[in-house]
Design a protein around this nucleic acid. Structure first.
Length: 895
RNA sequence: GGGCGGUUAGCUCAGCUGGUUAGAGCGCCUGCCUUACAAGCAGGAGGUCGCAGGUUCGAGUCCUGCACUGCCCA
């Protein structure tokens, strides 16, 4: 039989097969719909994969991100959208260059030794060999992306678009070149942006120096610094203009020790009279604040370090020393001169390079910048006006906070791997020609000797353009018309500024006249961080990194995906625990076995078919009306949860339905029908198949592998579509909702559970069936009578007797507002335990009644609370009275 | 220093615009190999919702303060 499943659920056996199938069959490739074609009538859903670094390996953060994206994309696709999820890879300037340099180092080679051309060749080779790791992992995890459209940020067309953007921004006066203090990484030997600097508290020292007055070396001004070596580049000492202590000294000169240079005492508000001596040394070439002071006072800028943070020729005798060697020597020398006034412990924040953790040196250098304010203004507006929505909403605040305090963006990097800046320097007149292609001559003097700028662009510049460059911009393509703006961006908050904000700025700028709006995406869903089970951040040094592929191989991709989805509630980090994943593997196993049960019955029942249509009379059975009602209600809830990006709610809703209702109740209820008369059995199989198939579709975006496997098995190799992923997503059908059936089932479930509970309490042997007595209103008696078989089977009951007198006082009996039930069983009950149970119940009920009485006795409550609430409490009050009465009587009877 | 979150069962987390008995998974206890599933089934124990005030007929939910804790930015 082709629909037979192996006895044990082995995820690895089925997952690899389907992962390959989805890729080779190109199931998720999207053709750009032609105008006027039927396809063009479908709504469009576009989603851009945040491109992982080409050097990257998949980590749990990626897996969470991709799981969420895949769930949404599969769901939208099944709902009838043209769903395009576009994958790509980022060239990752610094990271990749470092990687290849490290590789070269093991061969005793260096980037400089190789030269630019040969080095880039090497990087491309490296990319060819090692660059596809993440894509391979994504394919294994079944990400439903369109692999035919995969891009790399250094692809020729994308590179052309990057150059085009740079040139246009330059033409518009939004890119300039200037000398500024930048964060300089002496190891990477490049400038890095503010965002690439991570600050850390560091237990350092605060050193106090005495600078002698030029005209009176016996008198001093004391200054404090945490970086003594920068004094070599001091060009002033600043004091606050309001500081009385220094008023008469402003304008005088100091003699800078060691360098033997005269520097002025200047007045500037930056100097804080409360801090240290109130006087502060000014080093315009090595500190951003000092740089600003220097500009205000027209001070010289003396750069005393080279690109590896060694003292350069401006540092006189210290030339050639590393910055920290220089620090020691400066301190020794000053001490010898008696000018070292003190050393204190001082905690300071130091900046480290995000990539290599080297301490960053603020350093004056010439870089390219983007004038950000005009772009930021529009980007702020786009979010304010609701053109872009953040989920969770409060990330908009964080976004505004940053955007309103934004600084110009340093976009040049002193690297070789990346998009080289399209600017050519004239050897003759030093003019810089910015152009799309290499100019034959300088645009100013006509000189033929022009050389291209050595720098490349910040990686985030090119990735910030992706939402439109991936669709062929600057050409006016149909893709751009159809797919821009993207519908959604799903990413982590860690790249909110790096990437999200930049895409908004650049998208709004370059797509200003797009007919569907300029913003690059309409919604941003920010997800949490994945931590380990102890809420620790995963890091290599801690050794607590969970490899998604490893955990996937252990539990199955479906289980890992479901874990991540079910824990992805907005605003909280995910503490990933394997015990939870283990639980969801059990869920997958449950699905598997339920499927086996279905197939087993299909084979056993003659003439049964899973795909026939059900006879209407089947719906006369309560359990069928009930389960269809539940299914549709659940489908409605799941769809709504996904609209709200509540992956956790959606996952938990399906889980509870499938396990808690479909398997635990429905399958158990229909077992007799399945082995009943042929007609009845055939109908039962048909309904079972129908519900199962619907449940699989409902589950498919969350657990694509197991649902695909079972779904194909159901159709015995002749499925209505190539994949369940192309089938339709279940929607709520109002006509299937049946409140009465749901209420009635709740009564029966409650009855069955009460009987089971009594049996457990009286320690009835599991195999022994017992008669029960039930006292209930006519309506409930009728309900139980009609479903007598269900109750008897599921509660191990042997005969139900309906009695007219109350059973409440029978030892061990259970009373509810709907019925009283007692077990007919010759066994002494444990009086003490029974008393305890009754007392406990009573206490709870009395507490609740007191509460209800208090509320109903309160005129304000009656006047102000909505009628349904009052009614509900009133009804409950009645029930409580009865239940308490019965409880008390039972207790009294116990003696 | 500025900003944003979190504190609910032993653990990890839900709890939507305030409304009748605060839920789930894992773990724990008891009993079951009931022919789909022991990766299972059935039953059960376990919570003064961080603390103190306030608003309200009514607060886990809203407000204020405090404590602890995490993150982002400088």
């Amino acid at each position: 039989m082709s629909h037979e499943l192996p006895k044990t659920y082995d995820p690895s056996a089925i997952e690899v097969r389907w992962a390959e199938y989805w890729v080779t069959e190109k199931l998720f490739s999207v053709q750009t719909p032609e105008p006027g074609s039927p396809e063009s009538a479908k709504p469009i859903f576009t989603l851009l994969l945040p491109p992982p670094n080409v050097t990257g390996r998949l980590h749990m953060g990626h897996m969470l991100n991709q799981t969420e994206m895949d769930i949404i994309t599969r769901w939208q696709r099944m709902r009838g959208f043209t769903a395009l999820w576009l994958p790509g890879t980022d060239h990752a300037g610094i990271a990749t260059q470092m990687m290849v340099e490290r590789q070269l180092a093991t061969e005793g080679k260096s980037r400089q030794g190789l030269g630019r051309e040969a080095f880039l060749q090497r990087v491309w080779e490296w990319k060819k060999h090692y660059g596809g790791a993440i894509q391979a992992q994504m394919k294994r995890l079944g990400a439903s992306v369109d692999w035919d459209r995969e891009y790399f940020t250094m692809d020729e067309n994308l590179s052309r678009a990057v150059i085009e953007c740079f040139v246009r921004l330059h033409e518009q006066g939004l890119i300039y070149r200037g000398k500024y203090i930048v964060n300089w990484c002496p190891r990477c030997m490049t400038a890095i942006s503010d965002l690439e600097v991570v600050h850390e508290d560091f237990a350092g020292k605060l050193y106090e120096f005495r600078y002698p007055l030029a005209d009176d070396p016996k008198q001093f001004v004391t200054i404090a610094t945490t970086r003594p070596e920068t004094m070599l580049g001091d060009t002033a000492v600043a004091v606050n203009p309001k500081d009385e202590r220094y008023k008469k000294r402003v304008g005088k000169k100091l003699r800078l020790p060691l360098m033997d240079r005269e520097i002025p005492i200047i007045a500037d508000d930056f100097a804080d009279p409360q801090f240290g001596s109130g006087a502060v040394k000014v080093t315009p070439a090595h500190d951003p604040n000092d740089f600003a002071i220097g500009l205000r006072h027209n001070l010289p800028q003396i750069n005393v370090m080279d690109d590896q943070a060694r003292i350069n020729e401006n540092g006189g005798p210290y030339k050639g020393l590393d910055r920290y060697e220089a620090r020691e020597k400066v301190l020794r020398d000053l001490e010898e001169l008696g000018l070292l006034a003190g050393i204190k412990d001082h905690t300071l924040a130091i900046g480290k390079c995000d990539r290599c953790k080297t301490i960053v040196e603020p350093r004056l250098s010439t870089q390219w910048f983007i004038k950000i304010q005009p772009l930021a203004d529009r980007a702020i507006e786009a979010v304010e006006k609701g053109e872009i929505k953040f989920t969770p909403e409060n990330y908009a605040k964080t976004y505004f906070e940053w955007m309103r305090n934004i600084h110009d963006w340093c976009i040049s990097r002193q690297l070789w791997w990346g998009h080289r800046i399209p600017a050519w320097h004239c050897q003759g007149c030093s003019h810089i020609t910015v152009a799309r292609t290499a100019p034959a001559a300088c645009e100013k003097c006509g000189g033929a000797k022009v050389t291209q700028d050595n720098d490349v662009l910040d990686t985030w510049f090119s990735s910030g353009l992706l939402p439109f460059t991936v669709f062929g911009w600057p050409e006016k393509t149909r893709d751009l018309d159809v797919f821009y703006p993207t519908m959604l961006l799903i990413t982590g908050f860690d790249i909110l500024f790096f990437w999200v904000a930049r895409m908004i700025m650049l998208g709004c700028h370059f797509m200003a006249d797009h007919k569907q709006g300029s913003v690059p995406f309409k919604n941003v869903y920010i997800h949490a961080l994945v931590r380990d089970a102890d809420r620790q951040k995963m890091s290599k040094t801690k050794g607590n990194v969970i490899d998604p592929i490893e955990v996937t191989e252990k539990y199955g991709t479906d289980a890992v995906r479901f874990t991540l989805a079910s824990m992805a509630s907005p605003g909280t980090d995910i503490a990933f625990s394997e015990s939870r994943t283990d639980g969801y593997r059990a869920f997958a196993n449950k699905i598997w076995n339920a499927a086996r049960f279905m197939f087993m019955n299909l084979d056993r029942v003659e003439g049964a078919s899973l795909t026939a249509s059900a006879k209407p009379e089947q719906h006369s059975k309560l359990e069928n009306r009930w389960i269809y009602s539940r299914f549709h209600r659940v489908a409605g809830q799941v769809n709504q949860s996904l609209v709200d990006y509540r992956f956790d709610e959606a996952a938990n809703t399906i889980y509870k339905f499938f396990w808690g209702e479909f398997c635990d109740w429905y399958l158990e209820i229909i077992k007799p029908a399945l082995s009943g008369a042929p007609e009845e059995a055939r109908d039962a199989v048909t309904l079972l198949g129908d519900l199962f198939e619907g449940s699989l579709r409902l589950l498919s975006p969350f657990m694509p592998f197991i649902t695909e496997e079972v779904w194909h098995a159901m159709y015995e190799g002749k499925p209505p579509a190539k994949s369940i992923a192309l089938a339709q997503y279940p929607e709520l059908d109002q006509r299937r909702l049946n409140d009465q059936a749901e209420e009635q089932m709740l009564v029966l479930q409650d009855l069955i559970e009460k009987i089971r509970n009594m049996r457990a309490e009286m320690k009835v042997e599991p195999k022994v069936k017992t008669p029960v007595k039930i006292h209930a209103a006519a309506e409930v008696t009728k309900l139980v009578t009609e479903n007598r078989g269900m109750v008897e089977r599921l509660a191990s009951v042997d005969g139900i007797e309906f009695v007219s007198q109350s059973l409440a006082q029978r030892p061990g009996a259970r009373s509810t507002p709907k019925f009283e039930v007692a077990l007919v069983y010759e066994q002494k009950i444990d009086v003490a335990a029974e008393r305890e149970r009754l007392t406990k119940d009573l206490t709870k009920l009395e507490g609740e009644l007191a509460n209800a009485d208090r509320q109903l006795g309160n005129q304000q409550f009656l006047a102000k609370a909505p009628a349904p609430v009052v009614e509900g409490i009133r009804r409950r009050q009645g029930e409580l009275h009865t239940l308490i009465e019965k409880g008390k009587a039972a207790l009294a009877k116990l003696g």
